[in-house]
Amino acid sequence: MLVMQVKPEEEILSRVWGRRVFIFECFGCREVHFPEEKIETLVEKFKEKVIGKLSCDYLCRREFVQDYINEYCQEIERAEIILIFSCGVGTQVVSSLLEDKIVYTACDTLYLNGFQGLTVQDFNCNQCGECYLNYTGGICPLTNCPKGLLNGPCGGAKNGKCEVNPEADCAWELIYNRLKKQGRLNLLKRVFPPRNYQKIITESLLRKGV
């Protein structure tokens, strides 16, 4: 789940300053989160320089974006900069299709737990490529512990709360409690070897087009 926030106003205004702008606005993930009002107030500040605006969804789908660009080719041609309100994926798609244009994004993107899963949710997956959940009662220590510790807690938790983020529970205490409930505390005895970061390189190579 990618969520965007509008960048600081000064930053955008300094990029746009005095130049003809064409705007792409993507609300494909509006059902999750969309900073609509912020975008409106921001665009209002340089509206006389806006020569065209396209609101659409799923700016991340190249074939649609190509269609949009074909339709608005004249305005885009005249524009000095293309300003994008979208997540980082949308921005990259547009800039790869308009390689000779200056494409700026007006947003910072952050992801929410539940990564590419269906809905925002409490769970998070680090895509580590070597799932540890079998030893931790199904609670991921990589994403739930800010230090990503595999061999037990750092010892910094106070009253079950994490020392890094006191609003969060200590992941290892959650793991402990769950395994205890299941009578499987012996799982904690295993010493984990360090992570294999090489996997990230090799596994990401497995992506194939369909």
Binding site: P146, K147, G148, L149, L150, N151, G152, C154, G155, G156, E163, V164, V191, F192, P193, P194, R195, Y197
Partner: peptide
């Protein structure tokens, strides 16, 4: 293991934690 960098004077730092105290 070490404290998390967020608690110190360079909170922007990238936390490493490649190994942990046991490993």
């Amino acid at each position: 293991t070490g404290d998390h960098p967020i608690l110190g004077d360079h909170p922007e730092a990238k936390p490493v934690f490649d190994l942990d105290s046991v490993s």
